[in-house]
Design a protein around this nucleic acid. Structure first.
Lengths: 240, 240
DNA sequence: TCAATAGTGTCTATTAGACAATATACT
DNA sequence: AGTATATTGTCTAATAGACACTATTGA
């Protein structure tokens, strides 16, 4: 893994290392992402700009990258155990004006009812519809990271149960379908959708739930919250 | 992204940062991975153990993480532009006895005929069948990384053209099928396989190629070497 | 009984797998 | 011709999408 000379490389220039988290949720029938505002101090890079929540690894407190991501998420959202997966890493000599830096990006899906107050006196933060967030110039290369996160969410929505993690339990199939439609940006057939979800076996029945009017819907829970279930096919395979 | 105090965090403890590459190829009808032997000096971590090729980022020479991965790959294999994608990152306080460290793992597929001599006086290296590699205790958490790489390769082989990058052009369909079978560890139906590959449209005809005996096979080139093509379905969707 | 929403049934076009048949090379 | 391999054709079962229909609630 490392070079040949005994401990010479320990004096290598060490890059700055951070962890950033792209947190998605569905609010007001729109897909939204959590952003924080950078401090206004002129010594800081990108003063006042919107950025993804994240920051330096605390080598004293964080045992692993994942633990660091969880900590930052907890600090900003109060949510302790959401769906969280690694997105990728971005590193270069130029992405941070302070020097060579590498960030480990994570990807979280949370449901809104679980929303709580942030714990610490954190900088200004807010939920922003993704279309708005993509339009802005975010700090660092966070625009690129957000784009990658969105691409992954949409891609996985085509063949996995991932969007289910955007909803609070109990989940109803009409709700879930609406969520898929918001993420994918197109309408889906009701009958085919239900068959697909139910056949996939990631839902388990859990007491009925009323709706605004009309017939109440069956509620479901997610069998395994640690990972999304993969469907055998993509949504609209035909098309050609 | 970062904390609030002006430049205080620049004095944060910086983790060690490395890049490792999992290089796969098919040799002798088996899936193999490239490993290097760690220096024997007792001051080094894991002396003499097998490890993934990789090492510290050279903040002076490497402009980006990807460039760093490319450099390391070139040094070990002589291959300049193989299929290369990011696999993920692993970081913790304990993975390297020298201190908090994070590695950015990449994933490369190369074809054997392109094999050349390594450029520098590098440490001992060799191709090893994955079964053998998985059995050994690799240095650091490289066993875990290799496992993740293998899982991704097998997973993507189910629904993308990825295994095509393991072959030199011109590629024949029988060759490609054999490669899929090696990666997936099961036999596939010839007719269905050909339809799948040809319909996906990632191959373009390129002069015939002879085989050991019998009818010669049509040769194909890969239209776009920068990314794998995604099939609309998984291989054996039925099964239930 | 009507409006609203949830859930089911059925038909059809597509297609992956199975496997038989045919084509083209070399000896 | 005979052997070896590549390539194509056909049949069938599975299933996704389309869409009409039924069910269950509240007003």
């Amino acid at each position: 893994m490392e070079k040949t000379q005994p401990t010479a490389h320990l004096s290598f220039d060490r890059p700055l290392v951070t962890v950033d988290v792209v947190v998605f949720t569905v609010r007001q029938e729109r897909l939204q992402v959590l952003l924080v505002q950078r401090p206004a101090a002129p010594r800081e890079p990108f003063p006042g700009a919107w950025a993804l929540p994240g920051g330096f690894i605390d080598t004293g407190a964080d045992r692993t990258l994942l633990a660091c991501a969880r900590r930052k998420l907890k600090e900003k959202t109060g949510v302790a155990s959401p769906y969280l997966e690694q997105l990728g890493s971005w590193g270069s000599a130029t992405r941070d004006p302070r020097g060579w830096s590498a960030t480990h990006a994570y990807f979280a899906l949370i449901s809104m009812p679980a929303e709580r107050e942030p714990q610490s006196g954190a900088p200004v933060q807010q939920w922003m519809p993704i279309e708005d967030a993509m339009r802005r110039k975010l700090a660092f290369d966070h625009g690129e990271i957000l784009e990658a996160a969105l691409a992954r969410l949409r891609s996985k929505a085509e063949y996995t149960s991932l969007p289910a993690f955007l909803l609070p339990e109990p989940i109803t199939l009409p709700q879930l379908q609406q969520t898929y439609e918001i993420v994918l940006g197109r309408v889906l057939d009701k009958s085919a959708f239900r068959r697909r979800m139910l056949d996939a076996g990631f839902l388990e029945e859990a007491g009925s739930v009323v709706g605004p009017g009309g017939r109440p819907a069956q509620g479901y829970g997610i069998v395994d919250r640690s990972a999304a279930t993969v469907f055998p096919r993509t949504f609209k395979s035909g098309e050609a």
